[in-house]
Nucleic acid binder design. Sequence first.
RNA 1: GGGCGGUUAGCUCAGUUGGUUAGAGCGUUGCGUUGACAUCGCAAAGGCCGUAGGUUCGAGUCCUAUACCGCCCACCA
Length: 901
Amino acid sequence: MAEETLAKAYDFRSTEQRLYKMWEQSGYFKPANDPRKPGFDPSKKPFVISIPPPNVTGELHLGHAMFVSMEDLMIRYNRMKGVPTLWVPGTDHAGIATQMLVERKLADEGVKREELGREEFLNRTWEWKDFYAGRITQQIRRLGASCDWTRERFTLDDGLSKAVREAFVRLYEKGLIYRGPRLINWSPLLKTAVSDLEVEYSEEAGKLYYFKYMLADKSGDFIPVATTRPETILGDTAVAVHPEDERYQKYIGKEVVVPMLNRIIPVIADEYVDRKFATGAVKITPAHDPNDYAIGEKHHLPMISIMDESAHINANGGPYAGMDRFDAREKLWADMKAAGLVIKETPHTLSVPRSQRGGEIVEPMISTQWFVKIQPLAEKALEAVKSGETKIVPERFTKVYYNWMENIRDWTISRQLWWGHRIPVWYCEDCGEMIAAREDPTECPKCKGSRLHQDEDVLDTWFSSGLWPFSTLGWPEETPEYRYFYPTSVLETAADILFFWVARMMMFGIEFTGKPPFHTIYLHGLILDENGQKMSKTKGNVVDPLPVMDELGTDALRFTLLVGSTPGQNSNLSLKKVEANRNFANKIWNAGRFVLSALNQAPQTASGKPEWTLADSWIWAKLNALIRDTDRLFTNYQFGEAGRQIYEFFWGDFADWYLEIAKVQLAEGGDRAYFTAQTLVRVMDACLRLLHPFTPFVTEELWQALKRTAMEKGFSTYAAHQPWEDALIIARWPESGPAEGWEDGKIGEFNQVQEIVRTIRNIRSEKKVQPGRKIAAILTAGDKVDLINAQAKVIAALAGIDPGALSIESTLEKAPENAISAVVSGIEIFLPLSGMVDSSEEKERLNRELQDVRSQIERLEKLLSSDFANKAPAQVVEKERQKLQTFKETAEKLTSQLTNL
RNA sequence: GGGCGGUUAGCUCAGUUGGUUAGAGCGUUGCGUUGACAUCGCAAAGGCCGUAGGUUCGAGUCCUAUACCGCCCACCA
């Protein structure tokens, strides 16, 4: 069979799609232990993630790329650990967002939603959904997401819709859902109620308008009042002052006249009023302000709505009826000015409530809506985290979660939209009965009348997303999947969605299944641009993940997102980083190519028992330490740090050092070459396994090639007893064992070799020795002479020394003349570079060195004679003693080198 | 008004049981076509770890205060 050759550079373009298809078609994304299949073992505890379902409105963005990378990492890791693993994919109908986009598209065609009618509009929206849901899931596949697509769900599926109805009716029956008129946030643009969470406050420049509230007794006396929204004057039903405010006490109980409308309203006293703010007198508009609403209820004031659903003034606004709210503001103010009621206007910054989706100013209004009585649900959700049943990573977010749950208010769940789950409530036109039902009712249970009509409203999108972890598994049916995979393991999502989604899932999960829906909540931060700015279209700093993947590869993007992030912390993304990681993928590739060629040239059997070189032992010890660290870090959700360490090992230890040494060892041929090849395969194999959850494509591609060649040549996997699996995606995760006694020693010895090599390279570079030129060297190593002697070839090869001209002695009678000298770890290095030695320059260099070493000696002597020696652990003290010893030897040798000059 | 996060090399960031000369990538400066890799290699420069106290034998790491930047929550007309 011809030797397999790989392209010189890693070509992700020809790899990614092919491998993804292979994985998916081989069924690797499905849980190995499937309750629907024979041989199912219920004793195996599964690892389950429900995907945060992307909205069907849009295109892949970095937020998606982040959570897909992170979740795929966890899923692949667990799959390789041999845990039955399930990642449930799906999409969200995203009520408001989608309806808005479809309406916008219709508007471009000159059609209004109302003209189309509900049914036709929904047809159009389903068409939209079919196109965009397919696109977004395709884009998620490109990221390498190993979710089980056979279980893909959509929030408006039949099954999930059934779950929504069940949930609604259960809450209704428990009295936890109610309907009634309340002050809610109204979006005049979308003409629907929105919840408190869907309102964002922005600081904006505005004005404070001061005017006169004339007394009704025609005395000409007035109370000065200030407002930021003059148009709400039309809905005023009282003026409030502080009960102890001496300025206004005399007015309490009197009446004043609403400007321009001449309605008579009372002056009331309430401690809510801040005497120091503005005039210390407040106009009260219960129907259009949350604070005023509370006061209105307390004082039994009438509530006068002055706006219609598009925020135009209604008939209650008298002459202003029909005007837009902001036009009315101006007109009313002008009229008041003309009537002599205006005092002044001052600039004032106010926090303006804007709709999260449309951006328009939200109007507080009285409206009949459906609400969830949330407190009983919140209490249990709070308890689940307090008891530790569910953990939040990073931990600091538990406080945020507590704070929100403790101050939660009833949730407005009805939306005046068409796209969504219709509220499962019917009204009897004969007797007025209200019926909440799991199945569409045909007659009224009370009067048996058949004239029923369903509530027109739909539910808040988050109502259905709140059921996601269990509705996707078949709930309310007790399906085998639900029984086995629920509760899920980790809920991984962006920190900014904690209240919207995570909190609701916690509440609903506990309410409906009796169990918190996941044991861990892992929150990642936002992806910002390279300057730490939020990405936004208006700023033009949005990085689109698709072209990044096109240009630099999926692995590079994934690695950048994963390694650049710490739990809960925002991270800045720059293309430079992705480029650097593209280079890393290529580095992996080329190291793999080298290993393959080594396998092809090395003997396929050994004649004797394994004999490991220092480098072999060293790389093995480092690998074991790496596996241990990776395990520890993964357990603590420190994925970024784990990735970083694997990267450093791979590039800094394996590629930079071991591969270079392997070239020397392979050249020796025989058993040495055989065992070197074996070490190469095993370390490479282990690295590919460790890297796979981060960079699945390049590792799988390379691993397949490695496996083919290794099997052909009879080389084993990293674990010797572990046979080569079918694919890396389902290969076993390297097992970590405790550190063995010899490991630290080998690492320490090898470090000395590295130091020697670095020192010689340094001198060469400083002295501008031509890179190709082999030079001579004399080392004196004292009692380390055997150790260093064994590494002669390695040192010669790595430091550019002529092996024939390298001599290693324990001591020298007389220092070599005309040589550049250095001392490292007590080992002397002499480089006889005739003609290049400038003794005064050398003196200076050695003196600098000596000074450095002496200050270290001084530092350590001081340290060791301090309390440190008795109080610090013996091991730590011993380490410092050793260092001191080495420095002393070094100083001695430097001194003698100086005298020789 | 409350809460949280950040402040470490020119830039972007790591650094989680506190261990004693602080790391990476990019950038900068030299040098380099040694058959894995120029998407690379070798070498170098570059850091009172925001400031002030404290705990400790020992603090980038723990505690307190403080400054600046950012975020979240909250009903100030």
